[in-house]
Computed example of a mutant assay.
Amino acid sequence: MTMPVIELRGVSRRYDDGPPALREASLTVRPGEAVAILGPSGSGKSTLLNLIAGLDRPDTGTVTVDGVRVDQLGEAGSARYRRSKIGMVFQFFNLLDDLTVTDNVVLPARLAGMARGEADRRAAELLEALGIDRHARAYPGRLSGGERQRVAVARALMNRPALLLADEPTGALDTAAGQDVSRLLTALNSEGQTIVMVTHDLALARSCTNRTVRIADGRITEDIPSQAVAPQAVASEAAR
């Protein structure tokens, strides 16, 4: 059987003297799945995402992503892991306004040591594949919300990550732009990209994921796969 992209076993996390943010959570995500993490504010969704991203460590349990024991990494190792294994898309884009679209997209590759020429070629492929190559020399402030989120997705895919993490990716967008990003995520998953998305939006979860995990009070209360999981197809060269 194919090795899971994500494997959490008995993961718990408590902050200060409050109740556990996450309680004995176990979760397995396999290549080609698109998983929506649903739950009210304070349920543990963000904690789960941060543990997978190596931005936080569990008090108990293990976190393994693409063969890496993330819970055992130090600060430098966590940074290398995020550059090589995952791409992250945020609600508010997190683009650098004083850099052009291309410079925003190539940044992760440059930090990982990729030569500028190779990085520029990779960025150009991604921008073309995502339909925003005409904005390559523009600055993010000149783009619409949907276009900025596409730039953020291109940046997240720059280093060909095993896993794409999306934190409320349509939360700052209007309905039309949100539907555009939903279609983009669906297309990426159909090409084989593994996606884990935190969202409050049930319609978004239904439209572009094939599995729903619900969290309440730090516990995984429901894990519902669809009948058809996205195939583990090899992604197109531009989107891998």
Score class of each variant (00 low, 15 high):
47 T>R: 09
235 A>R: 15
70 V>D: 07
24 E>Q: 13
109 A>I: 01
66 D>I: 00
18 G>T: 03
3 M>W: 00
140 P>K: 08
215 I>M: 01
27 L>D: 10
90 F>Q: 11
75 E>W: 07
195 I>G: 10
27 L>N: 04
16 D>Q: 07
8 L>N: 09
210 N>S: 13
21 A>E: 10
198 V>E: 03
212 T>N: 02
144 S>Q: 07
235 A>S: 12
215 I>F: 11
135 H>M: 04
175 T>R: 09
153 V>C: 08
108 P>H: 06
41 S>H: 12
237 E>H: 05
145 G>W: 12
156 A>L: 06
71 D>K: 04
55 L>T: 02
218 G>N: 10
147 E>N: 05
147 E>Q: 15
92 F>D: 14
171 G>C: 09
56 D>F: 02
17 D>W: 03
25 A>S: 03
57 R>P: 00
40 P>Q: 13
51 L>T: 05
93 F>H: 14
128 E>I: 02
92 F>E: 13
191 E>D: 14
31 P>D: 05
5 V>D: 10
223 D>P: 13
95 L>F: 09
5 V>I: 15
148 R>W: 02
203 A>Y: 00
131 G>S: 04
51 L>S: 01
47 T>G: 03
34 A>S: 15
230 A>P: 02
123 A>Y: 12
199 T>V: 12
123 A>N: 13
76 A>S: 15
204 L>M: 14
171 G>S: 07
184 L>P: 11
145 G>V: 03
137 R>Q: 09
121 R>I: 06
57 R>H: 12
29 V>D: 09
48 L>I: 06
240 R>H: 14
45 K>I: 07
77 G>T: 00
218 G>R: 11
32 G>K: 06
21 A>K: 05
236 S>V: 11
64 T>Y: 01
136 A>N: 01
129 A>G: 08
93 F>W: 12
48 L>F: 15
29 V>W: 06
14 R>A: 09
21 A>Q: 03
91 Q>K: 10
182 S>G: 06
116 R>G: 01
71 D>Q: 15
175 T>H: 08
203 A>K: 05
226 S>R: 13
123 A>I: 08
198 V>A: 09
40 P>C: 02
239 A>F: 15
159 N>I: 06
159 N>Y: 13
147 E>C: 03
3 M>I: 01
52 I>M: 14
7 E>F: 00
199 T>H: 10
